[in-house]
């Protein structure tokens, strides 16, 4: 009796925390949308203020409120992260499926592509792709989406190779079903759990890499509010002791990424029936 009660309450706590995380991230995205104008307001009477009650994150050298700027920037990062994670998971899904269905040659080519993408250091490939797309918003989206699919594709490909040996797929083939029919009706549903888990776990990576590439100057242009831009600007003021410019935006970024991690893990655990009694 007590066992089930405990499991139930743990599930409830997990759900409550999950709801909190979703609401928090949603609020950041929503506030960022509203505060777009406010983030650009400069006021030289309040420049370089250390964190206080009216400005919890302080203000910068142009008197912009850092809290508002950080939230807008983070909102941008989260939206780009969601977009790019979905694109790259989509690529991974198609690649994984195609590798298994379209014959040996396609499989070899896709295997080579995966090795190629994983072989160039991540940051360097991001720099190259973003450079190829002329930087800016498009450069970031292309760069992050085209560099994150490889490990998930490898995973899905392995899964498909196993499925290919399963009885029902072989029977379907004997019954004269086409390759694509088998791929989409018999294999894709089995890949879905792996796919969803992979997709959710891609979010934090995508957000982090968007921030990193923007920080280096290959991403969003400097006038756009983005956490990467805020942090790279703050680099110039670190030495003069304006620690709040770097500390709080970074902390909020870490918090957002951690919450995404948490949402991902919890959602996977709630979906997975195997761990229902843990």
């Amino acid at each position: 009796m007590t066992g089930t009660k405990k499991t139930g309450s743990r599930r409830l706590t997990m759900l409550v925390l999950l709801a909190f995380a979703v609401v928090f991230l949603g609020a950041v995205v929503w506030l960022g949308e509203i505060w777009q104008e406010e983030a650009l307001v400069t006021d030289f009477t309040r420049k370089n203020l250390a964190p206080c009650q009216t400005h919890p994150f302080g203000t910068d050298w142009m008197g912009r409120d850092m809290f508002v700027r950080t939230v807008t920037g983070l909102s941008m990062s989260i939206r780009i992260g969601l977009l790019t994670a979905c694109i790259s998971a989509g690529i991974a899904f198609l690649m994984g499926l195609a590798a298994a269905v379209m014959g040996r040659l396609a499989d070899g080519i896709i295997g080579m592509l995966i090795d190629l993408v994983l072989g160039i250091p991540h940051m360097l490939l991001l720099i190259l792709i973003s450079f190829a797309c002329g930087r800016g918003f498009f450069g970031v989206v292309a760069g992050v989406s085209l560099t994150h699919w490889a490990s998930l594709a490898r995973l899905l490909r392995g899964e498909v190779l196993q499925l290919k040996e399963s009885q029902y797929v072989k029977i379907a083939e004997r019954l004269g079903k086409g390759r694509f029919y088998v791929a989409f009706w018999h294999m894709a549903p089995n890949l879905l759990p792996q796919f969803v888990t992979g997709l959710i776990l891609l979010f934090p990576h995508a957000i982090l890499h968007e921030a990193s590439i923007t920080f280096l100057g290959f991403g969003l242009s400097p006038e756009q509010p983005a956490v990467g831009n805020i942090l790279s600007e703050s680099m110039r003021y670190l030495v003069t002791g304006k620690w709040w410019l770097a500390l709080f935006p970074g902390l909020l970024l870490v918090a957002a990424v951690l919450l995404f991690h948490y949402i991902g893990q919890t959602a996977c655990r709630l979906i997975d029936p195997g761990s229902a009694h843990e």
Binding site: L208, F215, S234, G241, A246, L247, G250, L253
Partner: peptide
Amino acid sequence: SLVVASTPSFWIAMVLLLTFAVQ
């Protein structure tokens, strides 16, 4: 490990710089 994995490496570097070099 989770916190470190969620932190961009450049920000770790910035925090170390702030603490050990600037302060």
